[in-house]
Amino acid sequence: MSTVKRDQDRFKILLMGAVDGELTAEERKEFELLLAENPEYKKEYQEYKNLKEATKEMKFKNPPAELWDSYWLSVYNRIERGLGWILLSIGCIILLTFAGFHFFKTLIFEADLPLIIKISIFSVIAGLAILLVSIVRERLFTYKSDPYKEIKR
């Protein structure tokens, strides 16, 4: 890396520290030396100071005060309901699978239906199973390659 490029990179970092008032005394000296040696840096410094002036004045409006009163309660309820939904879903899946299995078993093996209807019913079940497996596989693949999934603990 050339000296000029290295100086420029160093200047960018020191420039941010100067604009945000986060330079140490030593860094401040280094920054002032760079400014003295490079007049074009002064203009850039002034531009970023102006920008900082504009952005630091931006504040968000307060939301309605009631939001804070009900915030925790809402989180608490959602945590509790989440558990309820999981249990409900598991129960429904088991019951529906059981009922579906008996329903189709009766239709295919016991009901007095034409062969073509039995084949159609079997085809519907097989199609649904293939689609389900395909979707689950796709979701797993997406999860593996999702750049946002990582949550460090």
Partner: peptide
């Protein structure tokens, strides 16, 4: 989850992009 130097460098790039959008004011 990155070094302070990276924060400053990212901040520089971000502000540069923002400044470019506000050229008419500067």
């Amino acid at each position: 989850d990155c070094p302070i130097g990276t924060v400053m460098s990212r901040l520089y790039n971000a502000r540069k992009a923002l400044k470019a959008k506000l050229e008419r004011f500067y």
